[in-house]
């Protein structure tokens, strides 16, 4: 308990002093996770919406595959992306291994099934009558689709927040594709793992605290948006 309380007070001092090593890891984490989440949201939310509102051959197989891919171990995703970016891989010529771009790509691969799957579930949970109601009020098919989308806005936001949480808290992909290079590809989670291994608990605790605060802020923002919407 003494070690933890000492580490916490040291960690607070590190955060208050904006320790460069800590801030660099925070910055890298935010950059790669925000970018990967945005890309996954741009692709996954519309895809989940489409799958949820259309019937087509092979839909059940696709849905089952998506659910399976959400449980794929991060190291497997890291391995797939690594094999693509390595010198002998199909994207080896781009020299992207151990860069933030490679990390964004890997994290995108990791969270896109989850984003699509959650968006699909969100769309399916919306009352089927929303579309018909919009149509009977004179909506065009596009306007009716937008009415359905609007109805699920918080569920889609929750999907984005969940995927952001998975992205920012991820270690395997960040380590394999980023290489944990100090000041370049070292994220909060890879730094936290490294500092703990080195016995540098204050830095590890500081990073852990910042991760928790970020998670808290994302959830608080979601609650704020939902509460504000209900007042309208």
């Amino acid at each position: 308990m003494g070690l933890l309380s000492e580490s916490i007070s040291s960690a607070i001092a590190l955060i208050a002093n904006c320790e460069p090593e800590v801030m660099s890891a925070v910055g890298t984490s935010l950059i790669v996770s925000v970018n990967s989440t945005l890309l996954a949201a741009l692709a996954g939310v519309p895809a989940g919406f489409y799958f949820g509102t259309h019937n087509f051959r092979g839909k059940s197989i696709l849905t089952a595959s998506l659910h399976t891919l959400t449980a794929m171990p991060t190291v497997v995703v890291g391995l797939i992306a690594y094999s693509a970016f390595t010198a002998r891989g199909p994207l080896g010529g781009m020299s992207m291994l151990y860069t933030r771009t490679a990390m964004v790509f890997g994290l995108f691969l990791l969270i896109i099934p989850l984003m699509t799957s959650l968006s699909l579930a969100a769309t399916q949970s919306i009352h089927t009558g929303i579309r018909d109601t919009a149509l009977t009020l004179g909506a065009t098919p596009f306007q009716a689709a937008m009415a359905v989308f609007r109805e699920g806005r918080f569920a889609y936001l929750t999907a984005v927040a969940t995927c952001f949480g998975r992205s920012i808290g991820e270690v395997g992909v960040a380590m394999m594709l980023g290489g944990n290079i100090k000041g370049v590809t070292r994220t909060m989670t890879t730094a936290l793992a490294l500092e703990t291994e080195k016995g540098e608990f204050p830095v590890a605790v500081a990073l852990g605290m910042i991760l928790l605060v970020i998670a808290l802020c994302v959830n608080a923002l979601l609650h704020f948006l939902k509460a504000r919407s209900e007042r309208i």
Binding site: D132, T136, A147, I232
Partner: peptide, 9 residues
């Protein structure tokens, strides 16, 4: 409709 569907707004 008999059980009208209301938008969340």
């Amino acid at each position: 409709a008999q059980s009208p569907v209301i938008f969340d707004a």
